[in-house]
């Protein structure tokens, strides 16, 4: 495998008194696409937040590009080349679309500037029509495009998408998946959490399934496709 962007082992994280992650191991290689799966409440978002330093693990280690960052502040971790599109999108409602985009636009950790303002607007023409609107005036799909555009403008090496198509009409969700494909093709690694198993499986290289804070499956996407019983057992409703 190519250079590891993220390498974490033995993660135990808590929310207050509840033990959410039970010794999770996860790694993401440069340019790789990883589907993070599991039913609701299995610890997917907690795992992502632990990687970003938004939740501190009680034990275990996180490395970004080989550098230990378990205790590093979140802003330093993400500046090493990670962009986060959180569940619920996290746009700033009191800032305009334009401001949401340019606020943190910057060159990537290695100085790359593949994504600039013009390219983002070309990729999301709907945003270009609404630059002066407040973030709260956008539809759900537009808000999602705004968060993804904002993330791309930080020129990350890794894009984390948590429930990016949640609550969106199928047609809009399809647009989002198309954008994720474009992002992948541009060489940016991705971690994707989504309820739509088939869509995630189709777009990613590797899948990882969490059950009650433990990794129960980790393997190639094509491999998981040929094991309907695994997917049925851990993901079926």
């Amino acid at each position: 495998m190519a250079e590891l962007l993220i390498e974490a082992r033995g993660l135990h994280s808590y929310y207050g008194a509840s033990h959410i992650l039970h010794g999770v191991e996860i790694s993401i290689g440069r340019g790789e696409s990883l589907g993070l799966m599991g039913r609701n409440g299995m610890g997917k978002t907690t795992l992502l937040k632990t990687l970003l330093g938004l939740v501190r693990p009680r034990s275990g280690e996180v490395k970004v590009k080989g550098v230990p960052v378990t205790q590093a502040p979140t802003h330093r971790i993400v500046r090493m080349g990670i962009a986060y599109v959180p569940e619920g999108r996290g746009i700033f409602p009191n800032l305009s679309v334009h401001e949401n985009l340019v606020m943190t636009a910057r060159a990537g950790a290695e100085g790359r500037r593949d994504w600039d303002y013009e390219r983002v607007l070309k990729t999301f023409p709907r945003l270009a029509e609404r630059l002066s609107h407040g973030g709260a005036q956008l539809s759900g799909g537009e808000q999602q495009m705004l968060t993804i555009g904002r993330a791309l403008l930080t020129n990350p090496d890794l894009l984390i998408l948590d429930e990016a198509t949640e609550g969106l009409a199928p047609k809009i969700a399809k647009e989002i998946w198309q954008i994720v494909r474009v992002v992948r093709a541009s060489g940016i690694a991705t971690v994707i959490v989504d309820k739509n198993f088939a869509a995630v499986n189709a777009i990613t290289d590797r899948n990882l399934i969490l059950v009650k804070g433990e990794v129960v499956y980790c393997g190639a996407s094509s491999d998981l496709r040929s094991k309907p019983e695994v997917h049925q057992k851990h993901l079926g409703v």
Binding site: L54, H75, V78, R79, A83, Y84, P86, F92, M103, T104
Partner: peptide
Amino acid sequence: TNREMVQALGI
């Protein structure tokens, strides 16, 4: 409005 998101954007 959103302290956590501001941090997650590298600020």
